[in-house]
């Protein structure tokens, strides 16, 4: 079964005051997937999201949502989007329920049952009639999600949804987002600079830096090629020469060498080292994390 693309972005660019902030990015969101936007501060995540929800106009490029062009058919396209951009800012002098009513009135036919449904979905039923100014940040996040889900969107766009949540809250949010994607079939776009979070909840990740998209791939793929082995051997120079002939060496870290992880060849390499009289103290496969990839891609170390 091929899943349909709900959001298509083609060659998006944005120039603000003669400075190019988004430099031509393209990607697609499929039904039922969680897509992560990963990038350091100032990468352009929020700017991209603002363009996706029509708050700012792209300098060039095309955004299409469920087949509708965002610029030319704004109301039809935006109908299928629910979003929180940066902080979930609601009317503090109204109650949570009144806030929902306010936004429900702006969309044709949202029944009261739907409002009750989303309130229950985000678990806010006990405090929904209190004024928003008395809410904690986490409760505001929940209310923000409730209003985003109100119109039964096909695409949910969340800018740093775990911002300000406690560990339990973060985990709940993660499970909630997975639930929405898997059970309700929504496409969810989540931005974050928290790598562990993205790693745990996303199906695919786009790594962004300085307004460009460096990589877009499934988490699995990104991690696989990221697996490393750390060698501790003596003398280091001899070991380096032998391993360099077999594979590539990413870097030397103190008295260790780091090479790609190829399970089938590990014993062969080890044999060669031992035969050459190198004392191998430790062969340690390193747990793959997005963090390494992220740091390498965004300008920590250079690859190869």
């Amino acid at each position: 079964m091929t899943k349909q693309a709900t959001l298509i972005v083609e060659n998006l660019r944005k120039t603000i005051r003669r400075k190019e902030i988004i430099k031509g990015i393209s990607f697609e969101l499929k039904e039922g997937e969680v897509f992560g936007f990963l990038g350091p501060n100032g990468a352009g995540k929020t700017t991209t999201i603002r363009m996706l929800v029509g708050l700012i106009k792209p300098t060039s490029g095309r955004i299409s949502i469920c087949g509708y062009d965002l610029e030319r058919q704004f109301t039809k396209a935006i109908r299928h989007i629910g979003c929180i951009v940066e902080n979930p800012e609601l009317y503090p002098y109204l109650s949570g329920w009144e806030n929902l009513e306010h936004f429900a009135r702006m969309v044709p036919d949202i029944p009261k049952a739907r409002m009750n449904e989303v309130v229950e979905l985000v678990g806010l039923q006990n405090r929904i009639h209190d004024r928003v100014s008395t809410y904690s940040l986490g409760m505001r996040q929940r209310l923000g999600i409730a209003q985003a889900l109100l119109g039964k969107p096909k695409v949910l766009i969340l800018d740093e949804p775990t911002n300000g949540l406690d560990p339990v809250g973060i985990r709940e949010m993660r499970e909630f987002i997975r639930f929405l994607a898997e059970t309700e079939g929504l496409s969810v776009l989540v931005s974050s600079h928290l790598l562990s979070e993205i790693q745990l909840m996303c199906d695919r990740v786009a790594i962004m830096a300085k307004g460009t998209m460096l990589r877009v791939d499934t988490v699995e793929h990104l991690l696989k090629e990221q697996a490393r082995v750390v060698w501790k051997a003596e003398p280091l120079e001899a070991a380096k020469a032998i391993l360099a002939a077999e594979t590539s060496i990413f870097r030397t870290d103190g008295d260790t060498l780091i090479t790609p992880y190829e399970p089938k060849k590990l014993s062969v390499w080890n044999k060669k080292l031992v035969e050459a009289g190198v004392a191998v103290h430790e062969i340690q496969p390193k747990l793959p994390t997005l963090e390494d990839l992220f740091i390498e891609l965004t300008g920590g170390e250079t690859i190869e």
Binding site: L55, F74, I81, C83, E86, Y91, P108
Partner: peptide, 14 residues
């Protein structure tokens, strides 16, 4: 200034 404009303008209303 309250940021609610972001929610207001992302509704299906011109």
């Amino acid at each position: 200034s309250g940021g609610t404009i972001k929610l207001l303008l992302t509704r299906p209303v011109k």
